[in-house]
Amino acid sequence: MKFAISLSVAGALALGASPAFADSGSLASSAPVTVDVNPFSDAQALARLEALAQTQTAADIAAIVNTGLPNVSLRNGAGDIIAVYLPSPGITPLLSQRGPGCAAGDACALANGGSTPFGFYGTGLLSVGIPNVTRISAGSNTTTFWYGGSGDFVSAGSTAFVPNRYYTRVTRS
């Protein structure tokens, strides 16, 4: 059986179908389902979701989704959530800026030709205003540096060179 996996954040747009909760009747549905692969899914997440789909009730699913925390869900072909879990570590509102300067494990944005480092520690979302950035590093957590409506995603332990950017937000998980 194939499924759609989606990442949903606090009631915001989920990747895939619109949010819907499975009732006990739809959990037993034999309707065909499709795979919707996105950058947040992998074989381990799918295996975990398939196992949860065998045991989670509609009440269990609603309780997790209604926390408002980021979650990873499995949907059937009708778009009903049939399994869900909270990823670890979860995003918390504890992202802080260090600096100027960067410490070991920090996400780091280098501005002004690398002469001004801006470090970020913890996880969550932080609004910033950092002009002239040409290099970003994730440190020990996956990090996205946002400019306008787009973002530069950097995996934990990775560094990316970017064209001269003005970042307005940083997210880390």
Rank of each mutant, 00 (worst) to 15 (best):
V170W: 11
D60F: 02
W146R: 08
L27Y: 12
A28T: 14
P93H: 05
L7Y: 13
A59Y: 05
R98L: 05
V84T: 12
A156M: 01
S173E: 06
Q54T: 13
I91G: 08
R169M: 10
A17W: 04
F21G: 04
G68K: 07
L52N: 10
A14L: 04
K2I: 00
Y147T: 09
C108M: 07
V35L: 11
S96F: 00
T123G: 10
S96T: 15
Y166S: 12
V35Q: 13
A160E: 08
G101W: 05
T134N: 11
A63S: 15
A156P: 02
V37T: 13
L52F: 07
N71P: 00
S26V: 03
L49T: 09
A62W: 01
P131A: 13
S73N: 09
S30L: 06
V128E: 03
D42P: 04
V65S: 05
Y147N: 05
A78W: 04
A43P: 01
V33A: 11
L69H: 08
S30F: 01
I136D: 01
S6F: 00
R48A: 06
R48K: 14
T171D: 09
A63T: 13
V84S: 06
R98G: 00
A62Y: 03
S24M: 02
F40V: 04
A31T: 12
A83E: 06
D42Q: 06
A111M: 09
N132V: 01
A17Q: 09
N141V: 06
K2H: 07
Q44F: 01
D36R: 12
L52R: 11
G90T: 12
F3L: 09
V35F: 02
A14K: 11
T57F: 04
Y85D: 04
A31K: 14
A109V: 03
G157S: 09
V154A: 10
S6G: 15
S29T: 15
G79H: 11
V9M: 08
P89L: 02
S24R: 10
A109N: 07
I5M: 14
Y166Q: 09
P19L: 15
P32W: 02
A4D: 13
L46N: 04
P131G: 10
A58M: 03
T55Y: 01
S41W: 06
I64V: 15
A59R: 12
Q97V: 06
G114E: 04
Y147P: 00
V9S: 08
T123L: 13
Q54G: 04
C102H: 02
G77L: 03
S137W: 00
R48Y: 00
S140P: 01
G122L: 02
Y85G: 05
S150N: 11
A20M: 12
V162P: 05
G149D: 08
A47M: 08
I82Y: 00
L52H: 08
L7K: 15
F40E: 08
P131S: 14
R75G: 00
F120V: 03
R172Y: 00
G124Y: 04
S155E: 06
P117L: 02
A12S: 09
